[in-house]
Write a protein that binds this DNA or RNA. Sequence first.
DNA 1: CTTGATCGTCATCATCCCGTCACCTGGGCC
DNA 2: GGCCCAGGTGACGGGATGATGACGATCAAG
Lengths: 237, 237
Amino acid sequence: MSGLVLVIEDEVDLATTLEYNLRSEGFQVRLAHSGRQGLAAATSDPTPDVIVLDLMLPDLAGTEICRRLRETDRTRETPVIMCTAKGEEIDRVVGFEVGADDYVVKPFSVRELILRIRALMRRVQRGEGEPSLIRFGRLKIDRDAHRAWVDDTEIGLTALEFRLLHAFLSRRGRVQTRDALLSDVWGIDADVTTRTVDTHVKRLREKLGDAGAYIETLRGVGYRFKGEPEEATETSV
Amino acid sequence: MSGLVLVIEDEVDLATTLEYNLRSEGFQVRLAHSGRQGLAAATSDPTPDVIVLDLMLPDLAGTEICRRLRETDRTRETPVIMCTAKGEEIDRVVGFEVGADDYVVKPFSVRELILRIRALMRRVQRGEGEPSLIRFGRLKIDRDAHRAWVDDTEIGLTALEFRLLHAFLSRRGRVQTRDALLSDVWGIDADVTTRTVDTHVKRLREKLGDAGAYIETLRGVGYRFKGEPEEATETSV
DNA sequence: CTTGATCGTCATCATCCCGTCACCTGGGCC
DNA sequence: GGCCCAGGTGACGGGATGATGACGATCAAG
């Protein structure tokens, strides 16, 4: 599970430490060293998946930031973890009143912070978003159960194949270059040949049987999952 | 779902934090900062729907409070969630001897506690006299007594194993990563390798005997408890 | 102190997945 | 039609992953 974490923290040392640790755990990181920067960073693309917020900032109080995040549509659902120093109990309480989702007390263990970030991401990921079931023509996949069917017959996909199919399904109708697929399915730092994608597309098509035709090859560009189930193979253009 | 939660906790910071969080989640809250206060608060009108109880209190041990609650008519059926520090005697807390219904390990995630409170409330709401029995194929577990049977033969599970089985049963049909299981069963700050999960799954499968096949392994993803008891392994169509 | 239960960790082993390579296919372009 | 290159295909070896059994630490009970 990768994800983008925004760290709003004015102590540069601490911020850098967190950045390093989070990256080495596979997260992407965006840093902000002041409250205003933080607010801007929270609403720029892409929206962070989790925000780590220091309570004591030079310009804006963490509580105030949190309140504004909750008033903004883009960040209303984004989980916030508050960092408080010891002795800030009262503010800490207020922090929760304002809608932080969890907190850690300084000095905190980085490992604990990461665990809490992970827990929040898990909760949100399945949360209110799109339903776990995705149907497309003769295809059906269930993300929670991690299962896939063609014509109501379950097909056994490996973890990678499942991610690949999901990537196709969630971007159906749009071309995806091999590089794009690599970073989506394999992860940012995948040191893998682009040809590997070919192999796995082949395996996926095989397992999908007839439904494998949903995956089109665009010579010189990449792959494209059909936009509509009935879309004729030769129509278009 | 609203409800009245009684929090018996001597650390004022933590108690206040919980109060704000629970209120913002729509619960009513009553606080008690000592064991005696707690006992009094538990039996005043209206009777709380759930009690959150710290194991370490200045005057009375949490276990003692729990025992007395169980001896009192008014509170006999009231679910109790015990907060324990790491390394405290979790085994005895849950199950017969003391009779707590659930526990969280400090430091716990506020979200986690709220989820558990909700779960307990649902359970009570479901029907007063209904035994807390869950049946699933050849399996049967009693959540109050912390006992489990396969084909009506009781199997002796440890506290941890029971919790693991319960985690599986309550999310049946859905994949659970090792990380998710760790934070649900061991606590968010569990100081444990993910491989530990493997070992305990193995032990659980062993004790379940044939019924151990209900737990499926999804390579590279996690574990999944079958959604339906009869679910064919390979039969199909 | 000793004993037994419980639980976390480690080493080992079998398995299966995945990445890569080599070779083949087929379409586009002249 | 021939060339060229992107993509399809099949096979293979390494390596990640999980099952398993053993060990040691811890703690409560006796």
